[in-house]
């Protein structure tokens, strides 16, 4: 069974249709890259998969392991293994990162009927992951993303992904705002999570990220649809020729 199936998805925001029938099938173990010009609907797709309010699905469906994802609350989706690394992670003043991480991890585990982590086990796990991503301990003591640089926010998203061990990871422009070294560290973090039963959907504008996280499939989105799909070479092609040819196709 496919892990994630988006079928002919139509989405409206404030009376304007943004996705006009988008189809995407993701199987376990696969890495998909989605590229496409600004405003083509990439983040909209990722938000609808994660369950963000304010989007009206007017057609099509999204299945997660065959189940209707659109009927589930966002937290239910998270517990089942859907993870979105946000393009713009929010700052949450007054909520310590550690508290947040532990509350979230234990909420997911509880929803799945698993036992909650003990404090020492949790701390050990966070420290390990943080170290592998070059995230200093003092960042974890601050409010969630408060005063984090753009790159630090992105690394905090990858940290959560590593901690929650989701089945489907959607990474919305995780490379934006990262310097070259940080990009390599973050990509290593993502690659470490690649596994035969986990899938990734990597949204990016830049072929460079795909040198680090090598995709099995590349999709081009334009004006709310997937207008072309291919192998990893499609990204190189785009780098050379731009999106103009696809805008016509859309």
């Amino acid at each position: 069974m496919s892990l994630l199936e988006v079928k002919d998805l139509k989405v409206r925001v404030e009376d304007r249709e943004i996705l006009h029938g988008l189809t995407l099938t993701v199987n376990p173990g696969e890495v998909h890259a989605i590229m496409g010009p600004n405003g083509s609907g990439k983040s909209t797709l990722s938000h609808v998969i994660a369950g963000k309010p304010g989007y009206e699905v007017t057609g099509g469906e999204i299945l997660f392991r065959g189940e209707n994802l659109l009927e589930m609350a966002p937290d239910e989706r998270a517990a089942k293994g859907v993870f979105l690394a946000f393009q713009y992670p929010v700052e949450i003043p007054g909520v310590a990162t550690m508290t947040f991480l532990r509350t979230a991890l234990n909420a997911q585990r509880k929803a799945r009927g698993e036992s909650e982590y003990s404090t020492p086990d949790f701390l050990k796990k966070v420290r390990e992951v943080a170290k592998s991503l070059n995230i200093p301990q003092d960042m974890l003591r601050r409010g969630v993303n408060v005063g984090f640089s753009g790159g630090e926010k992105k690394r905090n998203e990858i940290l959560q992904m590593a901690l929650f061990e989701p089945a489907v990871c959607i990474l919305d422009e995780m490379d934006s705002g990262l310097d070259i070294d940080a990009l390599r560290v973050a990509a290593d973090g993502v690659n470490a999570l690649r596994s035969p039963d986990r899938a990734m959907v990597v949204i990016t504008h830049y072929q460079r990220l795909l040198n680090y996280i090598v995709p099995d499939f590349v999709h081009v989105m334009s004006k709310g649809r997937v207008v072309k799909s291919g192998g990893k070479d499609l990204a190189l092609e785009l780098e050379a020729s731009g999106y103009a040819q696809f805008e016509d196709a859309a």
């Binding site: 309010p53 609350a73 998270a78 949450i92 509350t103 979230a104 909420a107 959560q160």
Partner: peptide
Amino acid sequence: FYLRARGL
């Protein structure tokens, strides 16, 4: 939404 997307 951010918190709920993380399972809360």
